[in-house]
């Protein structure tokens, strides 16, 4: 039965997918090929839509694939299957954190982790910038600045520093500027 197959497949992807969208997409790709649910062209389209629409990429892709295989209910089934392992594991972890937060072991672990997370945030900045503000890499000389992206980046940076602009306002502004600049130039 297709619904059971969907929930089981996406449950497994939910367990194996450490690190979000960009890890989950290759997992989805191999599952889809194995089950012959979609052609590779259809899958490429789904990944593109998932990245360009609001929401987590992994959830978007799961919903889309579920719909294409078994309609709207299929989409919901795939999504629920995928987030079920998270729900169980994160609730257990959050519960343990509340219980042992003050212990020296947890405190010392957190003191080690926090600076590493700052490094990962710095990486996220580079990652997002490499898909908008610049492209290519310095290593092979293919580096180039995307002027339109750089203009939007600078505008949002300045406005956020000078005013208390809400991130949602900043995102709406970026979307509007992006559409205008890319249509005009």
């Amino acid at each position: 039965m297709i619904f059971l197959q969907l929930i089981w497949t996406f449950f497994r992807i939910g367990i194996l997918g450490f690190g979000g969208g960009y890890v989950i997409i290759p997992l989805l790709s191999s599952e889809i090929a194995r089950n012959q649910w979609l052609t590779s062209q259809e899958f490429a389209d789904i990944v593109a839509v998932s990245q360009m629409t609001p929401g987590p990429i992994g959830v978007n892709a799961a919903t889309f694939i579920g719909i294409r295989t078994a309609g709207f209910l299929g989409g919901l089934t795939a999504t629920v299957g995928m987030i079920l392992p998270s729900l169980i594991l994160v609730v257990i972890t959050a519960h343990m954190m509340q219980k042992f937060k003050e212990s020296i072991v947890v405190q010392s672990i957190l003191k080690g982790i926090r600076p590493a997370v700052i490094g990962l945030i710095a990486y996220a900045v580079l990652f997002f910038a490499s898909m908008s503000v610049f492209s290519g890499s310095l290593a092979d000389g293919s580096f180039s600045v995307e002027i339109r992206g750089a203009v939007i980046f600078t505008a949002v940076l300045m406005l956020s520093i000078k005013t208390r602009l809400h991130p949602i306002g900043a995102i709406a502004l970026s979307a509007g500027l992006g559409m205008a600049l890319f249509t005009l130039f």
């Binding site: 997002f128 898909m131 992206g149 939007i152 949002v156 991130p167 970026s174």
Partner: peptide, 19 residues
């Protein structure tokens, strides 16, 4: 495409400030 690149550019600035 413009919307996508625009949002990414703005989000780059927002994550930088949060970081």
């Amino acid at each position: 495409q413009g919307l996508f690149v625009g949002v990414r550019s703005g989000v780059t600035a927002l994550i930088l400030l949060a970081g």
